[in-house]
């Protein structure tokens, strides 16, 4: 579904990601690593928000290395960035409806599916997204991306700042989304333990390079942890 071939990326002249090779199928693919390991840079590079400094990215067989973010959204790729992932001045309903700028199914049906998944949002429907709690805002962000009906969903540290209860609930929902919709999910996470519980495959980044890329099932956690101590 998503293939990266020797992709390097970063900010200006600074290279963060160094020649990453990756092959993501229709699975929950966890990207782990310490702060500064390059998780967010990887997500931004895939979503077209950062120019890659080298290598090629392809999505469903098409080269998308220099494709604009809006074109990627049309092709079926949605991202929930770590920060600034809602429109704070718009209501919950408006935030979700913006996801329907792509796709052909009726907007209402798509939004109703999100409300089924996140029933806590129903009483907040006409509330400004900027006035929601962190957990509710994250539901809106994920919900908006789901209304886009992506085939690959990028989630950049979606549990950052959430209480353990909200974080656990969101992890369960992410797995539920994958199983119900059969979409690929690329999940960047700090919480390695929880991410491994729901992931099919795990990538550990360390200093912008791949430290480990293996199936999540039966993985030796000490080896994952070692990627955080380089």
């Amino acid at each position: 579904m998503l293939k990266l071939n020797a992709v390097s990326s970063g900010y200006g002249d600074v290279t963060i990601l160094k020649e990453i090779d990756l092959d993501v199928g229709g699975e929950v693919f966890a990207v782990l690593g310490s702060n500064g390991a390059g998780k967010s840079t990887l997500m931004k590079a895939v979503a077209g928000l950062l120019r890659s400094q080298g290598g090629t990215i392809s999505f469903e067989g098409r080269d998308v290395t220099r494709t604009a973010p809006n074109k990627l959204a049309e092709m079926g790729l949605a991202i929930v960035p770590q920060e600034g992932n809602i429109f704070p001045d718009l209501t919950v309903r408006e935030n979700l409806s913006l996801g329907a700028l792509v796709g052909t199914r009726p907007r209402k049906a798509r939004m109703d599916e999100v409300f089924d998944l996140f029933p806590d949002l129903v009483p907040r429907i006409d509330q400004k997204a900027g006035s929601l709690s962190g957990g509710e805002a994250q539901m809106v962000a994920v919900g908006r991306a789901l209304v886009q009906e992506p085939r690959l969903l990028l989630l950049d540290e979606p549990t950052t700042g959430l209480s353990p209860k909200y974080a656990s609930s969101l992890f369960r929902k992410i797995r539920e989304i994958h199983e119900q919709r059969r979409i690929g999910i690329l999940l960047a996470e700090q919480n390695a333990v929880k991410a491994l519980e729901i992931a099919d495959r795990v990538l550990v980044l360390s200093l912008g390079a791949i430290f480990l890329n293996e199936p999540a099932k039966g993985i030796d956690f000490d080896r994952v942890r070692a990627g955080y101590h380089i």
Binding site: A47, L49, A68, P69, N70, L72, A73, E74, A78, I79, P81, G84, N85, I86, F87, L98, G99, L101, V102, Q148
Partner: peptide
């Protein structure tokens, strides 16, 4: 920045 990911 986020609006760019809405497909328009």
């Amino acid at each position: 920045v986020l609006a760019r990911n809405l497909g328009k």
